[in-house]
Design a protein around this nucleic acid. Structure first.
Lengths: 337, 337
DNA sequence: GTGAATCATCGATGCGTATCGACGATGCTG
DNA sequence: CAGCATCGTCGATACGCATCGATGATTCAC
């Protein structure tokens, strides 16, 4: 592997000059720059990351702490990961994976060894055990999700409250006076991620404002639980029932139950779920969805991180950013009256 | 951040001694070791990764090249990623994400900058454009998937041929004489991953050996295509039909179509699909599945990589490892007669 | 009790880059 | 044309660790 010294020699300049050509931190004459660039090209020189990190005290690597919960929303997590990695490259950074099975100690490790300049935490829980560690690190940390106490932390997440409000508002506009919200599956509830509460709160706020009724019903990955929830919903209204089921597994079961009772989506009953556009369109009756915009959340998380890294004022930052959600009405909801 | 020099000072030894305590590459007296370890503990010293990489020429980081194909098998990819990251830690390595949207150039970058010691490529296609680049790199490369020409490369994948054979064998044993294999969805077929061919070949081999008929029918993410395939299957046998549908999206559609025709899984018709155990159990009729063992494939990929890194004989390695697949019969297949 | 062999530790050096101070060359002001 | 600021480049040094050769301290054999 060629080094900057080799490049310098080939270009007939000092090593430091090569460095300045690359960084642009000192003026370089056009002539010299051309020579150096030619040498770089010819030797296919690429700076050594280790040496660069050692000298500059910047690795240009961001640690991404992913949950190690097999089976739970794998696809959804991957969408974050993929977009985060891709966006990081746009800011000339790379992503190092830190799995949660190392526990909070993993954060201390990658920061302590100075493998990365900052951390993005995914799937932040209400009382996340990683937070005390995160607060003690002298590197920027960006959370995806909002803990109970976000003080002194930089958080970003989808605006679940707006999502809840929006769902209820639209269903009310379609003529529903009683709207049933099915909880996420127990495995998610047990994780104590507060987006659930924020979402439900949003539905309550809208219900109060519009004078409609919102029922909160338990979710589950077994047919029985949801079947029971559907029963409650049906007996609670004389009009056409409406369901909001943001959990993907649950919405699948819900749809089957409704159809087995002879209820046609978009005709006898409204259902708003959550799915990627492609998946939503793929359904027998295309599903109206609330888009929680994982890609946009991911992009912004990386952007915020890179801004923090550029500023590198290591003081205690604090901010909270909510990404607007978007409802797309397909065929599973009644038309607004 | 404390350095090994600080530790040396605190322990009253030379910096090199600290280094030898850590690496164990030279004998150290019990007394000295204790002193150094105490100092390390007290200062919470952690070696600087950049400096270590610079001096040792090893980063202890493995690059993981993930496909940047939104929407396609996200969940499945995440299972690989998660297990790979976690396994890498067991070998005291970390994982750097390299997204495919950088193209093959991304490989050259991370290796050229010496950010990582080796590469694991996921979703390797038949004529993968990354392969020429990979062959030219002087670092170990492990492929998950098998290209058309695997010469000079280290590959690992699930044994799709065995999977196909096994599916047909079990369905034949259950009394089916005509077995329909539904292709993967077009998006997968278009990627020219040859596991499709290997799987289909396996079904043909078994069919020939057992004297049963195997039909290859087109898959699709639209109901119409699969409906048509089902028709063909039904008219091709006087006995009870059997389906093998390894694509997850397709098996969902298939099940709906069969049930809408009044066919009960495990009674009138056999279906073997592919899904995680939890998901398979969750179905109204628990799905018999062929497990392609992504976790095991991931673990072995990392293991192979770490062995190559340890050996670090940078000669041209070549190997091909196939991971046995496992069929689990639940309720969607007829009992063997 | 002398020489050789082994053991434990130290000091020095190199890895490849960023960065600082210095210095000659050039341009400008009056 | 003297004096001074600016520009462009160089040399030297630091970053934190691994590693090699050297050296003093022990041990052992005879």
């Amino acid at each position: 592997m060629p080094t900057s010294k080799d490049v310098a020699q080939a270009a007939g300049v000092a090593q430091s000059t090569v460095s300045y050509v690359l960084s642009g931190k000192r003026p370089i004459s056009e002539k010299t720059r051309k020579k150096v660039e030619a040498a770089i090209e010819q030797l296919t020189y690429q700076p050594n990351a280790g040496a660069r990190a050692l000298a500059s005290r910047k690795t240009r690597v961001i640690g991404l702490v992913i949950p190690f919960i097999p089976e739970l929303e794998m696809g959804s997590i991957m969408e974050f990961v993929s977009v985060i990695a891709s966006t990081a490259r746009q800011y000339d950074h790379d992503i190092l994976l830190v799995t949660d099975d190392e526990g909070a100690a993993g954060l201390g490790r990658v920061v302590g060894q100075q493998i990365c300049d900052g951390l993005i935490l995914m799937q932040v829980e209400d009382e996340d055990e990683r937070l005390p560690v995160a607060r003690g690190l002298n590197v920027p940390v960006v959370l995806i999700g909002i803990p109970r106490d976000p003080s002194g932390l930089v958080c970003i997440d989808a605006d679940f409250e707006m999502a809840g409000e929006h769902c209820v508002r639209d269903l009310a506009a379609a003529g529903h006076s009683v709207i049933s919200v099915i909880d996420w599956q127990p495995a998610v509830m047990d994780r104590h991620v507060n987006y659930v509460d924020r979402f439900l709160h949003g539905t309550d706020v809208a219900a109060e404002a519009l004078g409609v009724t919102v029922l909160h019903l338990p979710g589950g990955t077994d047919r029985a639980t949801i079947s029971e929830s559907v029963d409650k919903a049906l007996t609670s209204t004389t009009g056409k029932p409406a369901f909001i089921a943001p959990d993907r597994t649950i919405q699948d079961i819900l749809r089957r139950i409704l159809s087995s009772r002879g209820l046609t989506l978009g005709l006898d009953v409204s259902v708003i779920g959550s799915a990627s556009p492609t998946l939503a369109e793929l359904q027998p009756i295309p599903l109206s969805t609330i888009d929680l915009r994982p890609a946009e959340v991911s992009r912004r998380a990386v952007k915020i991180m890179c801004q923090l890294l550029d500023a590198d004022s290591h003081g205690p930052h604090e901010s909270l950013e909510l990404v607007p959600t978007v409802i797309t009405h397909r065929s599973s909801t009644l038309r607004p009256q």
